[in-house]
Design a protein around this nucleic acid. Structure first.
Lengths: 187, 187
DNA sequence: TCTAAAACTAAGCAATTGCTTAGAAATATA
DNA sequence: TATATTTCTAAGCAATTGCTTAGTTTTAGA
């Protein structure tokens, strides 16, 4: 009945994600997206509605990638040391898929922290809660910890993970490793 | 010989600082600065050269304010517990001077982490190094710590401080306090 | 009191932003 | 093969960006 799409939406979102990851949301223009995604603005808007639509899809795609290390954490049976391994994975895996620095989610969290974008904030809070829940589940594996300690430590770890992601954009590997090591000395 | 300035440069920079602190650099336009500073664009450019000039002066002004708690840390004689108090001060004092969230330096650090702005990066690195130095000095007060431990812990604390500032923009007081407490548990 | 120099106002500059649209090109079905 | 329908190209939209400038107002010193 009509002409066929010349691009694959998942493929072009992957490219958009990489660009957003490198530059942040505001510093990525639709013209830059055009070039990176290899399709015209018309196609971008036809497929994703608006710039924010492209971004939200990019985040979804990123989360899907993250699920690899997230699942690993979920399935682990070693409690705290699984969380520690998750910290290491978080700073190492991103290098594997795209060589971009930091974490797209955390970068976004920081970029939008002051502003009040409901859609984006939802994505962030959702992610943070999910993270905290898994941490709690892992911490509960240690029977010596009471519930209050567990929640306190979970709070601590979520913020530490957040700080780690921010640090991984600029700090050296040694600084990062020192940080992770000492973080878990407190647990 | 000529007309006198109708504004005080330090006063208007104070207002600019508050605006940058709330919105970040990119999300603050020169039109917004006009309104907040209460002076015309001509005056802004005459006094500070360019938008970035206003920003750099704002950062200087912020650092000066920060010196109050920085000096307190410097003069302290209790080593690690001075650092811990500095962490508490860092999240409480900002509320006193302007009720803005987080830390302007850290916000800037995050906003410019990906980009490569030399002038701004200089300011950031300078601040981080200064911070690390004081931490090292305080850690050395404990004679049981060897130099390697001191440097490792200093690295850790700088990153923790950074994460804390980011967290203080969005997290609750309890989460923040949990974080500080655990951060110093094993230092 | 006059005047030269600085401070001000307000309009305007080109470039960039996110987004739209008119029209040409392609193609699955009738 | 013909056509209806979608995809694509490329130009253009108003709004906003950082910054400039022509022209007016103010004021310290001659």
């Amino acid at each position: 009945m009509a002409r066929t799409k010349q691009y694959n939406e998942q493929e072009v979102i992957e490219k958009a994600m990489s660009l957003f990851w490198r530059n942040g949301y505001e510093n990525t223009s639709v013209r830059m997206l055009e070039k990176e995604m290899g399709i015209n603005q018309f196609s971008i808007y036809a497929s994703f509605g608006c710039k924010q639509g492209v971004f939200l899809e990019s985040i979804k795609s990123y989360k899907a990638k993250l699920n690899i290390i997230f699942d690993k954490l979920h399935k682990g049976t070693d409690g705290v040391s699984d969380i520690k391994q998750f910290f290491y994975d978080s700073v190492n895996k991103p290098v594997e898929f795209g060589n971009n620095k930091g974490c797209l989610i955390t970068n976004t969290y920081n970029e939008f922290a002051g502003l009040e974008d409901q859609l984006i904030n939802e994505q962030m809070v959702d992610f943070m809660n999910k993270l905290k829940e898994v941490f709690i589940q892992k911490l509960r594996m240690d029977p010596s910890k009471d519930e209050e300690t567990i929640h306190q430590q979970a709070n601590y770890l979520v913020l530490a993970k957040h700080g780690l992601a921010a640090a991984s954009r600029v700090n050296t590997k040694k600084e990062i490793d020192d940080y992770i090591d000492l973080t878990f000395k407190n647990i």
